[in-house]
Simulated assay, not measured.
Amino acid sequence: MYHYWGFGLHILSEIEFPELLPFEFDVPDVTIRLGKTPETLEGDDVVHRVRISMSPNEYLLKIHDIANYYVSGGKKVLVEIFPGADEKSVRLFMLSSAMAAVLHQRNLIPLHASGIFHKNGVVLFCGQSGAGKSTLVTALQQQGHHIFTDDVCVLYPQSDGSINATSSYPMAKLWADSLTRIGITSTEENRIRPQLPKYARFFHDSFVTDSLPVKAVFVLERSAQITNAELTGLSKLEAFEKLQANAYRPAHIDAMGKRKLHFSFTSSLAASTMIYKISRPDNNDSVKQLIELITSRLM
């Protein structure tokens, strides 16, 4: 069995995950095993979606020709791998949708955000897929900043009403064109799935497992109506609405009965942290403009 740290949890796994941080511990929070998953979930509280069935304490995901994933009680994951399945794809769905289910079952809220370290805390960049989160933190890394997390972080409320964030795992995922714009080369070995022109960049050596205070949040949005990047501050209500819209795997929230919890976490973050919206042009490379706007607020 392999021992890892990921998403703030001690993970004991029969599957090897090069993406995760090797970590020694005595008692696991989550155990991942190989085996036969249930054919279906039953019960009055089960919600069925395409490829997914879920309730507050059970989750079943079926990915054709890859694997089935069964999550129960936020502690146990059963993975049924199909013959000939691509190993990277098996791991990718485990670390995304299945882990999101683990977190929700444990009453933790994952946010769709990347981040960098800043002044004994972290700055987060929220945004839907394609907004440019991974490209931005990698470009900031090229300028001397250290990546805190890519794509997902986990929110932890503090006793004073503020919010801390915990990283997911030490790997950033970037599309081939993003790597080209930043001036980074990659290899086929780092392709995250055979059919996707998306590549992994690891940062195990600088990865930190501490839960850290959130200093600021920038919400990235693409716009076809502008030619230059624009930054605006958000009111507490606007910030709350943007954070709500950037939940990670939002389909889980209502189906798993986590709406009240998600409301509490995001309202605390909106109330305790400066939140900005950055609109970026949809048709040109605006990374340099984004960095200038962000650094002007962080000085």
Score class of each variant (00 low, 15 high):
256 M>T: 06
250 P>H: 03
56 P>T: 05
159 S>L: 13
7 F>Q: 02
140 L>D: 06
51 R>Y: 08
193 R>E: 07
184 I>S: 03
181 R>P: 00
63 I>T: 04
235 S>R: 05
20 L>I: 00
43 G>M: 05
195 Q>R: 09
152 V>I: 15
59 Y>A: 09
28 P>S: 03
281 P>Y: 02
240 F>V: 09
121 G>H: 11
204 H>G: 04
10 H>D: 08
185 T>K: 10
279 S>E: 08
155 L>R: 07
2 Y>T: 00
150 D>I: 01
92 L>M: 11
67 A>Y: 08
142 Q>W: 01
167 S>Q: 02
284 N>E: 06
103 L>S: 05
272 S>D: 04
269 L>Y: 09
271 A>G: 04
75 K>C: 10
138 T>C: 13
22 P>L: 13
254 D>V: 15
102 V>K: 04
238 E>D: 13
153 C>Q: 03
145 H>D: 09
273 T>F: 15
143 Q>R: 15
90 V>L: 03
35 G>P: 00
93 F>A: 01
11 I>D: 11
270 A>M: 13
52 I>A: 01
163 I>T: 04
112 H>L: 10
132 G>W: 11
286 S>R: 03
218 F>E: 01
7 F>C: 06
269 L>S: 06
29 D>E: 10
19 E>G: 10
232 T>R: 15
42 E>W: 05
98 A>I: 12
131 A>Y: 07
50 V>R: 11
203 F>T: 03
66 I>G: 01
114 S>F: 10
262 H>W: 11
137 V>W: 14
197 P>A: 07
6 G>E: 06
204 H>V: 06
138 T>K: 14
69 Y>R: 02
88 K>N: 07
295 T>H: 09
37 T>A: 10
140 L>K: 07
101 A>T: 02
93 F>Y: 15
284 N>R: 14
190 N>G: 04
129 S>C: 12
169 Y>G: 06
95 L>F: 09
41 L>R: 06
131 A>P: 01
131 A>D: 02
206 S>L: 04
210 D>T: 04
87 E>I: 15
2 Y>C: 05
206 S>D: 10
82 F>T: 08
109 I>Q: 06
113 A>P: 02
261 L>F: 08
84 G>I: 07
273 T>Y: 15
280 R>S: 08
9 L>P: 00
82 F>D: 02
245 A>Y: 05
152 V>H: 07
271 A>E: 13
42 E>A: 06
123 V>H: 10
